[in-house]
Amino acid sequence: MTEIIKANVNDDRILTEITKTSKAYWGYSDKQMDEWSDLLTITSEYIQKNQVYKLIVNQSSIAYYSYFETENNSVRLDNLFVSPKNIGIGYGKLLMNDFILKIKQSERSRIILDADPNAQKFYESFGFTKFGQIETSIIDRFLPIMELKLD
């Protein structure tokens, strides 16, 4: 059975594990992963404060996304991670479709996100376009800032 449900505050550890192992999947060094540890930690407070939805497959949490509302009738997709053994199966696409549908139903007009460079093509496949970039702590590495207009 597969379902997407709202995460609860007790999901902090599993969502952190999914985040960190998924990020490491893309070949970042152990040193870099250590530097990002706090940024990649999902706390109970974070879950309480933001909209966080997890994907359950066969009674196990394997992926999630999170977002929050911003100014100008926009929503920011803050996280979308799939556990490494489930990457490439279509779960990311399932989560994105669920997320976009939720936002369309909320009558928000725009989704923004900062993409990992490895995920830019994934987001482009949903119609997101790059409109800027942010320099990161890794020399010559930039995060694309992307948007999807929901007119």
Rank of each mutant, 00 (worst) to 15 (best):
S83D: 07
D98Q: 14
Y64E: 02
K104Y: 06
N10S: 13
D78C: 00
L148C: 02
R141P: 02
S106V: 03
D78S: 02
L150M: 13
N10P: 01
K121G: 03
D114T: 01
A63N: 09
R141Y: 13
G27V: 06
D78V: 00
L80M: 11
K93P: 05
R141S: 01
K85V: 15
D151T: 11
F126H: 08
N73Q: 14
F122W: 13
D11C: 14
M33I: 12
Y67A: 04
G90R: 15
N86L: 09
E3L: 10
T136L: 10
Y64D: 02
N118G: 04
D34V: 05
I5F: 03
M146I: 01
E35F: 06
G132R: 08
S83Q: 08
D151C: 10
K102T: 06
S61I: 15
I5C: 06
Q32K: 04
N73P: 07
E17Y: 15
S106K: 15
E3N: 15
W26N: 10
Q133C: 06
S44N: 12
R141E: 13
K102L: 11
L101S: 11
A7L: 09
G132T: 07
Q59G: 02
S137L: 10
K85F: 08
D12L: 08
I62L: 13
T43S: 15
D98P: 09
I134P: 00
F99L: 12
L40D: 04
M96V: 06
E35A: 13
Q133G: 02
I47Q: 11
K93F: 12
S22R: 04
D78Q: 01
I4P: 13
I42L: 01
T2I: 14
F68W: 01
S60D: 15
T19C: 11
W26H: 05
I42T: 14
V52K: 01
I145G: 00
M1L: 12
V75Q: 08
T129F: 05
F131L: 08
Y53V: 00
T129V: 15
G27C: 02
I111P: 08
Q120Y: 00
G90M: 14
M33E: 08
E69A: 13
L95P: 14
